[in-house]
Write a protein that binds this DNA or RNA. Structure first.
Length: 498
RNA sequence: GGCGGCGUAGCCAAGUGGUUCAAGGCAGCGGUUUGCAAAACCGCCAUAUGUCGCGGGUUCGAAUCCCGCCGCCGCCUCCA
């Protein structure tokens, strides 16, 4: 398929409708997604967001686009209160732990990537740090001052909302409406309560500060995304993504800054993912119901979490529960088992052309998959197509001697759809390796564990051969109690984690 | 107060005017297989004037559009 033939439609928050996806400069696509503020471990909300955009990027590449994916690391300027007051989150953590703020940023940046790696989220092409782009941010502030869209007060610079009539367009708010129910205490320095900080004067004791034409200070939170997205993607660029909770004020502010500075559009498509809820409530630090990924991975296979996320739509909220995760875990293992069955059958398969029935069934799977993904990345529908592939694969491998052509066709479909696009790695062993990569299980320990279970399995099979089924069942039961399942197959006894 | 959204089977969750519109997963039930299991396979699993929160309406036709009501969620402060 050539790119021009694709039928991808995406929901654009800017226009509040689904639109045909047409990049500004095909075949290139620039996408910027708001990244994490690195002051704590990532949680399952981050997983939903970044898995969603990971699949979006993977699908665009699958369609043949040349994608440049930029996702920032916020290590400065993100305050604990509103955009203009409170303490810097990274600095606050550093103060509590008595380390340098950059140690905090580095520690949790690494932690974030570890968790994303475990979820098989591809690294962005560029992961720019806000602290590494102070010059670009200062330049942006200078341009806004030159154009009369901002003003300086006591070493801080604020965006002048009244100078930009389109302010609030993305979220559909007017400045007047915002004032009506505003909970923000107006700052004495601001001319208008809706004005927001571009640059803040550093108070005494503030560790992270940089020289600027307005004195020592640090950038406002929204500024980094404007500066770094356009630095690496140009202006305008194709897709800007982020969490729905950031539509206002973060994204409205980005748009205002960038468009006012350059007098041209900022991003063409705005994609927003919805939230993870726990017990129907938004998961948040203030509510104390957030679940870090490191904790989640102790209990759940990262791939099960990934499948759980992909079984809903990125624009729908997703309610997290142990019951739902258990269901996803079973589902993932079925997908994994089907792929393993195909690979195993290939070892002894006779040669030959793929049979036409399987070919047409696989083609139908691909059609359904593409139809779902083309409809605003409906991964739930795409996953359903993959389960059709699972069913076909088990039928083919169970029915007896499938030839290599048929099995290759099935494996190719798994590789392209489940693995390349949805990022569901195939194979139980690969999942175990992801645990190792995430530091949850040492490779050496896994090897010892495997050997131990093999010995127990041998003992059990000796008992079975002697028809001592009581002993055989006892060994199986004891392993089951510690979460290891034994299965007797034609090819011998297999084991897996429960 | 303003803005946006949701309510689909035991659980999670697609679908937003009409042939496949009630996907898919999990759980469950019956059968094949197995020393017994597990896995896999086959079948069943939202059905009737009263199926998609409830009540009206529009339409030849609605889960899907409109109105009202009930319940819930998000944003308007930081948050993926």
């Amino acid at each position: 398929m050539t790119i021009s033939e694709n039928n991808l439609h995406v929901y654009n928050t800017l226009t509040r409708r689904k639109e045909r996806f047409e990049p500004l400069q095909p075949p290139n696509v620039g996408i910027y997604v708001c990244g994490p503020t690195v002051y704590g471990d990532a949680h399952i909300g981050h997983a939903k967001s970044y898995v969603a955009f990971d699949v979006i990027v993977r699908y665009l590449r699958h369609l043949g686009y040349n994608v440049r994916y930029v996702q920032n690391i916020t290590d400065v300027g993100h305050l604990t209160d509103d955009a203009d007051q409170g303490e810097d989150k990274v600095e606050r953590r550093a103060r509590l732990e008595q380390v340098h703020p950059m140690q905090v940023a580095e520690k949790f940046t690494r932690s974030y990537f570890e968790d994303m790696d475990a979820l098989n989220v591809l690294r962005p092409d560029i992961s720019p740090r806000a602290s590494g782009h102070i010059m670009e941010q200062v330049e942006l502030v200078k341009r806004l001052l030159e154009r009369g869209r901002a003003y300086e007060v006591n070493g801080s610079v604020y965006f002048d909302v009244s100078s930009w009539p389109k302010y609030g367009h993305l979220s559909g708010r007017s400045v007047d409406e915002m004032m009506a129910g505003a909970r923000v205490e107006p700052s004495a320095e601001k001319r208008h309560p809706a004005d927001f900080a571009l640059w803040k004067r550093a108070e005494p004791g503030h560790v992270m500060q940089w020289p600027s034409p307005w004195g020592m200070g640090y950038p406002g939170w929204h500024l980094e995304c404007s500066a770094m997205s356009t630095k690496y993607l140009g202006q305008p660029f194709d897709i800007h993504g982020g969490g729905i909770e950031n539509v206002f004020p973060h994204h409205d502010d980005e748009i205002a800054q960038s468009e006012a500075a350059e007098e041209k559009p900022f991003a063409k498509y705005w994609l927003h993912n919805n939230m993870v809820t726990v017990g129907g409530r938004k998961m948040g630090k203030s509510l104390g119901n957030f679940i870090t990924l490191k904790d989640a991975f102790k209990k759940w296979d990262p791939m099960a979490l990934r499948l759980f996320i992909l079984q809903s739509h990125y624009r729908s909220p997703l309610d997290f529960s142990d019951e739902a995760l258990a269901a996803a875990k079973e589902g993932y293992e079925r997908v994994s088992a089907a792929l393993m069955a195909v690979r195993k059958a290939k070892v002894t398969a006779p040669g030959g052309e793929a049979d036409s029935e399987t070919i047409s069934a696989a083609a139908e799977v691909r059609r359904r998959f593409a139809e779902a993904m083309d409809d605003d990345f409906n991964t739930a529908g795409a996953v359903a197509a993959v389960f059709d592939l699972v069913k076909i694969s088990f039928r083919v491998t169970t029915a007896s001697q499938a030839n290599s052509g048929t099995l290759n066709a099935l494996e190719a479909a798994f590789n392209e759809l489940a693995a390349a696009v949805l990022g569901l790695t195939g194979g139980v062993n690969e999942a175990e390796e992801l645990y190792c990569a995430a530091g949850l299980l040492a490779a050496d320990s896994l090897a010892k564990l495997r050997k131990t279970i093999e010995h127990l399995t041998d003992l059990r099979n000796e008992a079975r051969a002697a028809r001592d089924f009581a002993r055989a069942d006892d060994i199986r039961k004891r392993l089951d109690e510690i979460g290891i399942i034994l299965e007797d197959t034609r090819d011998g006894t297999k084991w897996r984690f429960k």
